[in-house]
Amino acid sequence: MKKGIGFMLALLLVFLLIVSGNAAPKKDTSWEEIAKRGYFVLGLDDSFPPMGFRDDKGQIVGFDIDVAKAVCQRLGIELKLQPINWDAKEQELNTKNIDCIWNGLTITPERKKNVLFTKPYMDNRQVIVVRADSGLASLSALAGKTLGLQAGSSAKDALNNVPDFEASLANVIEFDENMTALMDLELGGLDAVLMDEIVARYYIQQRNKNFMVLDEALASEEYGIGFRKNDQALMEKFQNTLIAMAEDGTLAAISKAWFGEDITVINR
């Protein structure tokens, strides 16, 4: 048995040596590679309306999807949509299974270490959704209550950044998807859900639910498109196309179709 453990340790050591070996810096051909390949893979959590989600035919639609389609058309490449598990988004990106994360991805200092972001294209806040008849109207009223949020989302970071509020809660429950949390809120299993304002407002409006967004937000944040750390050229190509689309009004038109007004910020 001892022999076996020694063997496993040796194996582990070999793995570590391989992993730690640094590759020499190379010329950035990220855009050329995509252009040559002819398609671009966008990774998303397909249950994130209105940014990216499935319609009643099972097709992936959304604001981000419409913008991505327009960008790829201008760049003359095909857009491929790849649903991913949101918890594994950084691995999916770094193992080149997807070329970007474009799905209402909040720019956080933590994520910036692993992901190369474009300029922000939309503002967002982390807000608290409660049942309209619950009588809860402020953060302090949530003391001793149960809060739900999406695992691996920036809502979790926002909550961690307000330790006093987090400590005042009785319970924090993490769900795979925002929508499951909202369902639980409706059933009374949760007292509040912490989530992206853009998603919350769209949902309440679309579903005509008896929910309410608290005025007090937990954090202000921005959405960006996440690329691989080394893909500077690819990121700039997309960013410049987005800016061009903002200048000629294409982006505003897509925003109006989804939100009724232009709420994009990339050109500001």
Binding site: D46, S47, P49, F53, R54, D55, D56, G58, D176, E177, M179, T180, L182, M183, E186, R207, K209
Partner: peptide, 12 residues
Amino acid sequence: VARNEANRLFST
């Protein structure tokens, strides 16, 4: 697929 539908329809 069922979970996506549940999310879209807000129904279990």
